[in-house]
Amino acid sequence: MALIECRQLTRTYRRGNEEITPLRDLDLDIESGGFVALMGPSGSGKTTLLNLLAGIDRPTAGTLSVAGKPVHNLPRRALANWRSAHVGYIFQLYNLIPVLTAYENVELPLLLQSLSRSERHDRVATALEAVGIEDRHEHYPRQLSGGQEQRVAIARAIVTEPTILLADEPTGDLDRQSATSVMELLAQLNSEQGRTIVMVTHDPRTTEWADTVLHLEKGRLVEQAVGSERP
């Protein structure tokens, strides 16, 4: 059984009198430990799919199961709890909380779990070490470079040891060197820790690190490339 199973997944929005369907009848299976890159032109439905997988949006029709658990029909509060336990989300613009230090930002998702202070400390230290930024734990986001901020954001996403790691154009706001570094880190998390990663990207170079590349157009899956070789 696949880790993520989408069946006839559809999302429709209403904008005034107009009905927009960025995702239509999508069937998709993503295996545990996979690194999937979602590509496609603007409006193709890739971010909508990512939002549905993250549980921050709900499908209009169809079903979505993660690790065998249907999440498409969870109530709002239950969905929030599910997100905190199973989803790590990496944003294009990092979305760190500016008034919290790197350490506190990474600790933030752990406050939603029943952990002692020392357990939280150990987990945050491990996550910061995994992304190579342990020496900056007392820095505020404004004191970090873009690449460093994204590393802190990745640490925040992995600190809860989520079932799936979702990334929305994680290198979209970074220079080439930082982008390569971040992609190497994601690939490392995938290959060494077995994390399942789904990444939206516009940049074909970043797909080199993925093992599956999905192309979406007008809300439908048009192409699937499997087994790309990592750099």
Binding site: I56, A80, R83
Partner: peptide, 10 residues
């Protein structure tokens, strides 16, 4: 930022 906190599960 509020959206990010909700994404984290708050």
């Amino acid at each position: 930022e509020i959206g990010s906190l909700q994404t984290l599960g708050y």
